[in-house]
């Protein structure tokens, strides 16, 4: 026996034991998140199926047609105090309006701001301040944006002539500001990933800055910008609190026809059904959530796929 061996006493058994236990704990923790997602979807499907024939939700196969029928019925019906007839047509239409208009108003501003900060703004103190400001805006609770929209767009500080009231446009503007930081930050990240050599090649041919950005930088950054756009839009249609603040109506029987009409939104209607004490409305709320979650998860999954593919190329 050498002296070194006698002086080191590694507790091999304990070390060998604690490692896998810790690893398993970490794995379990990771699965909690995934499990939560599964339980969440399962519970909602189950609740949606609590309709007349009480089939267990895990027997989804035979219930699938029923579920599709339910979702279809909910998507076509309007708000009602009768749970058997209640639906989301108005809210769904409102959400689609919001989606389209935010894409037209909010996304260009966000992408434009990202391009300005990354390609035009001279580095220095001012740019750092603006950058920090955007990072902070990303952390502002959504309800604060709602308060901003309420005071600025809906009421216009009490100046009636310019106040928009609880109209679709007020909601669009509020949500556009809300998603601005996400879109700006992802746009900047995408632009930063465009190689310098590409920019130099364009400039060396006598291109102006905008010609270079328009023809080379933006097309190369497009997948990243798309990711930001989708994430921003999915955030916009999932938000409830700011819309409650700027007056998305809970009960409305007419879908909006233009930006200055009153409107409702899918999550707001879900909220209204969910807080009803009558448990039969829970089924209605669950159906609405199914529609909303399906929409959002599709959008988010698309964003994740685009981003991962994009990463593989650089």
């Amino acid at each position: 026996m050498t002296s070194a061996e006698s002086r080191f006493h590694p507790d091999r058994a304990a070390r060998r034991l604690v490692g896998p236990i810790f690893g398993a704990a970490c794995l379990a923790a990771t699965c909690t998140g995934v499990l939560a997602l599964v339980i969440l979807l399962g519970a909602i499907v189950a609740a949606a199926l609590q309709g007349p024939p009480h089939n267990p939700w895990y027997a989804l196969g035979p219930n699938l047609r029923e579920l599709a029928g339910l979702v279809q019925k909910l998507a076509l019906g309007v708000q009602s105090s009768n749970p058997a007839r209640a639906g989301y047509r108005v809210g769904l239409a409102g959400s689609l309006w919001l989606l389209g208009l935010v894409a037209v108003v909010g996304i260009p501003i966000g992408v434009g701001a990202g391009v300005f900060l990354e390609e035009y703004a001279p580095p220095g103190r001012l740019r750092r301040i603006v950058q920090t400001n955007i990072a902070n805006l990303a952390g502002v609770p959504s309800i604060v944006y709602g308060i901003l929209g309420l005071a600025l767009f809906v009421r216009a500080f009490g100046v009636k002539a310019v106040a928009l009231g609880p109209t679709l446009l007020a909601g669009v503007l509020t949500l556009s500001l809300l998603i601005l930081p996400i879109v700006v930050i992802t746009t900047q990240e995408a632009l930063r990933a465009v190689p310098r050599s590409l920019r130099q090649a364009a400039l060396a041919l006598g291109a102006t800055r905008w010609q270079m950005i328009r023809d080379h930088v933006l097309p190369s950054a497009l997948p990243g910008i798309m990711t930001g756009t989708i994430l921003g839009l999915s955030r916009a249609i999932g938000e409830t609190a700011p819309l409650l603040m700027v007056g998305a109506a809970g009960s409305l029987l007419q879908a909006p026809k233009g930006p200055l009409d009153r409107y409702s939104a899918l999550p707001v209607e879900i909220y209204n059904y969910a807080k009803e004490p009558d448990t039969r409305f829970q089924m209605v709320a669950a159906g609405g959530i199914l529609i909303l979650v399906a929409l959002l998860l599709t959008m988010n999954a698309a964003a994740i796929v685009i981003r991962n593919r994009f990463r593989r190329y650089d």
Binding site: L198, Q200, A202, A204
Partner: peptide
């Protein structure tokens, strides 16, 4: 000026 004085870079950098 850059149209009249062209440049070729170290690493080939064709546009995508």
């Amino acid at each position: 000026l850059r149209r009249r004085i062209g440049m070729v870079f170290q690493k080939p950098n064709p546009f995508p």
